[in-house]
Design a binder for these strands. Structure first.
Lengths: 151, 151
DNA sequence: CATATTTATATCGTTCACGATGCAAAAATA
DNA sequence: TATTTTTGCATCGTGAACGATATAAATATG
């Protein structure tokens, strides 16, 4: 079977790609009413944990480059979720801070994961099995993230 | 811990999203020289398994909608990898068939997975561990794919 | 102190994803 | 057969991702 490896069903990456797409899609019914997208939700998660971070730190946290994060933040600023102010010690930096609206969303987002979990539990039977993915995904991510994002 | 669930590190979806991004990114050094992107590679995988399929079947196989697949195929047609001809029995259909160029790429793509595996093995230590992801990802995908893509 | 390098962010172009919508052909139903 | 519904594909708009490149400020080096 010379081309056995070239079968779609033999490819882990396709599964990751699909699982990620579908999982992000599963957030849509919950995020759409809040007026945010999944990547925007990720930014909010980071800022809810700690407000007032430079673009760079947010990017590092999300393992994204600034050329992805900057426009994302600009859109979020335009929709009133956050503000970007010039850094004081380092004027190159842009400090991102939540607005009231951005802060308030936390309350509404609090139950998303519960709802989602219940939803998936119903469809998959078990949540524990999903939890087993975590350590391996973390190893994979660590192994693949060796491209040094500057900062 | 009222907001414990809203911590980035507690979220499986973020891991899937990141792992998928990084894994697709790992294909880049191999696909870029061939002049194709990862989604285009997926289309080729499908067509290499079976040539001359309607758009719909390809979309179903990749679990994507036609509004994603159609432009993808159009770009691939423009770069000479495939052709889209009107179906004979059903004139609504567009039958997608590989060109010589598209067929020939299979030979060059044959070793990508080996190289990639070696690469990841070096960074992660084990490939078996990655294989353990597969059944769980499949269950997750099946659970989440209940939105009926027409066809 | 002057120059070179690095760093933080931004801009641009291309390619996905995907919701919404449109349209013509096929199939189902009246 | 006439009409409705479904199906297969396409188009449009928006928001990511990401490679390449630019710019100014900070830092390192001469």
């Amino acid at each position: 079977m010379e081309y056995e490896q070239l079968k779609l069903n033999n490819q882990l990456c396709f599964r990751l790609y699909t699982a990620a797409r579908l999982t992000v899609g599963a957030y849509h019914p919950y995020l759409n009413p809040l007026g945010i997208t999944y990547p925007q939700y990720l930014v909010l998660l980071v800022l809810w944990e700690q407000d007032k971070q430079p673009v760079c730190d947010i990017a590092k946290r999300l393992m994204l480059d600034t050329n992805t994060v900057t426009p994302l933040l600009q859109r979020m600023e335009k929709s009133g979720l956050l503000q970007r102010t010039k850094g004081k010690t380092d004027t190159r930096q842009r400090i991102v801070s939540l607005t009231e609206k951005g802060t308030a969303l936390r309350e509404q987002a609090k139950h998303i994961l519960e709802c989602l979990s219940a939803n998936i539990l119903e469809k998959m039977g078990s949540l524990e099995e999903l939890a087993t993915l975590v350590p391996t995904l973390d190893k994979l991510i660590e192994g693949l993230s060796e491209r040094h994002i500057g900062c």
